[in-house]
Design a protein around this nucleic acid. Sequence first.
RNA 1: GCUUGGAUGGCGGAACUGGUAGACGCACGGGACUUAAAAUCCCGUGUUCCGUAAGGGACGUGCGGGUUCGAUUCCCGCUCCAAGCACCA
Length: 869
Amino acid sequence: MRYPFKEIEPSWQKKWADQNLYRSVADPSKPKYYVLDMFPYPSGDGLHIGHPEGYTATDIVSRYKRMCRYSVLHPIGFDAFGLPTERQAMVENIHPRSITERNIATFTRQLKSFGFDYDWSRSVNTTDPSYLRWTQWMFLQIYNSWYDPEMDKARHIDTLPIPKSIVSQHEIDEYIDSHRLAYLDHIPVNWCEQLGTVLANEEVDEWIEKGYTVERRPMRQWMLRITAYAERLLTDLNGLDWPAMTIEMQRNWIGKSDGSEIQFRVVSEYEEHEDMAASPRTHEQTITIFTTRPDTIFGATYLVLAPENELVDVITTPEYHDRVEIYRQVTTKKSDLERTELTKQKTGVFTGAFAINPATNERIPIWIADYVLAHYGTGAIMAVPGHDQRDFEFASTFSLSIVTVVAPFTEILEGSPDGRTAATAAFQPPTKAFVDDGINVNSANNMVSLNGLHTIDSKRVISEWLEERGFGRRAIQYKLRDWLFSRQRYWGEPIPIMFFDDGSKRALDDDELPLLLPDVADFKPAGTGESALATVTEWVDFIDKKTGKHARLETNTMPQWAGSCWYYLRYCDPQNNNEFCSKEAEQYWMGDSGIDLYIGGAEHAVLHLIYARFWHKVLFDRGYVSTSEPVRRLFHQGLILAEGKKMSKSLGNVINPDDMIDTFGADAIRLYEMFLGPLEASKPWSTQGIEGMPRFLDRVWRLVLESPLDDVECPRELDRVLHETISKTRADIESLSMNTAIAQFMIFVNVFTSSDIRPRKAIEQFLQCLAPFAPHITEELWMRLGHSTSIHLSAFPEADPTKLIKDEVQIVLQVNSKIRGKVMLSPDADEQTMEHAAMKDEGVMRHLDGKTIRKTIVVRGKLVNFIAS
RNA sequence: GCUUGGAUGGCGGAACUGGUAGACGCACGGGACUUAAAAUCCCGUGUUCCGUAAGGGACGUGCGGGUUCGAUUCCCGCUCCAAGCACCA
């Protein structure tokens, strides 16, 4: 007797859909549970076998929570704007909308064939006008916000105080624009000629790998001021139930550094440092540097500016001008990637200028080098070659002086206590910089001394001194940069801003949204660095009805991340035409904890999750959502590998889920993917290994149907297995250990199959345990057992703890910690009983023979160990 | 280089707060049923040594140490693998 999955699975899928069985309802009388899958991009290849792994896990949790009487929200939708679709459209010469529709249809069919319990009435599609309208609205909320540092939150732009000194409307507009959380900037970006678009830094590698070239080019771009949220994005990581790795990656990405900004006065080449106090300062110029090691300032022997630093023009002396210019030209042509690739060989040129080290009062040269990044800190550093490896390499290359001002603790301990010997010892030509904490040496002037101080104390002392003398102040820097938000693509959300001939601009009002893409036949990039939209004159160029002025629309569109920044909110109220989501729906589904469980790949650990957190915080500040964080619990499923490698089209090792369902059935695939191993681990797919699953389901089928079930009391031993199964299923679903729950199901089936009686109640409860994992077969069997309502709406069974207790447990008997026997005893047998029983054991007696017991260790319910000699 | 994980039979993996290592499955071997095969069911399966056998012993969770009566589990030091970051001063 075999389980006829081919008939049963599609037929239940249809019935469930007809009955709206999985419709989510915000029922205030019940607790809610929001379980979310990461937003799929409907690619032309359809689902691969890795997709259903995470989806099955959320499906199990969702079904389980429903049976535990939660109101469950488990939605799905499509992140459908994006470059691959646009490119496919060009290849096939049909509209991206058609490609999108086609791909979504395939994804939907495949997802449905797995029997997932999505509420399809809540499905969203980012390219849908009713969705993109709200993406544009979200953008405008960001655009119309500024970050108030005093209240530490974003507020409406109308609340921005305008300084009295600003009077003209033009200046006021500029001032406001410079404070918006969405702003225009002219910055060097990664331009890809073949794609006709800029790429985000994080997208560059991917396209270079595919053989495209990417160059740096300054362009006018929309930016989102995510840096305003750096500190909150960092500190709010603390309360999250997220994988440690992901939290660490986000911390790293934000990259907070605690240090000092220090000013170095620039002196002319001929100015002698002795008379620096007396010399007339005609053009006082200072360079501000950022450092996390102010304690090493006595070892700062030169300064380095980033080639892009504006001060380079000001300070470079005439005779060095040409060399500096050539160097700057070369470096600006390099991409970030190329600049970092040349890790070993440091390059740079001298500017001819000098600065005064405020600690030593010495004159030190100012160089430019591309190992200093323009966009981090102040774009300038004090170089301490003795205690920074990069500075050391640079100084070695250009024969700049290297001074040791920190000695390792060990040298101090071995040398004289005041550190003098250590200092001398450290002057041996070093081969690399000493970058760890230590004890300061050679670090004194006539006002302050750090000698003998621990790095931690030195930092404090020198910072205070620098601050007192007006040379510097404590400062915090972040690696996080503002988010480049525009793309020169057709297939994305248009940015709802128009520009007038006088240079002013106007954001579209709510009643003018959505701003739809023009329906054009040719959506190839304009070839001018603008998107295809620039060529659609009747769309771009028009007379604005509200002002009567001639206007030109923004031709950039939003990046693909935009739609995925807030989709989880739309799911709460997807049909709403007046708001992105009603307050009630948001409060119900997102209330206090946000998304209760979010499962998706680790590849989104940083970008998607940091962008979405940022948008969410803006919405929170502006009063649109009730939590400061969107996702309480996050989980990354592992990859499913084929032949030890990631599945990919190019390797030709992709397993098609349609074939698998056709051969083995959806329930078997679901179970197999869960049984392979821990959800978070990468696991190899084996089409051979899957065989065990249809076999198991056949055994379930036979257990229920082969012989009539008995309406009898369940024997104690079987009852224990049942209650262990219930208890284990509950615990394992909560901890997402699906693999061990399934092992327990197998144990249940093995035990009950070999039993003479088939207690109906126990077998029904088992089916309820299995239902979240294998929804089709359990539903069919449930109905065949005479039920008239779905198993998936039944109440999940409760484990009775009294039934989990065993009559007898096996006690391990050891002599000198080696197992010499076993004995069955009541679990609450006392120490004496256990010891006596152990003494009588044959194996124990044999090994104790001729020996004296020195010590006896008894662990109740576990073991007896005789230490003898 | 840095960060975070990981390493257990032929394979995927299990093992609670230190207490029977190898649950469950795959594969393999043997048997039953069958004219035969498939399917199904039963038994066996870490390595090795002694014994004709029943049985008994030794070793065994990447490597080397340590703590402990006892370590896959805790501590120290390595090796290898995976993922991410990588001139962020």
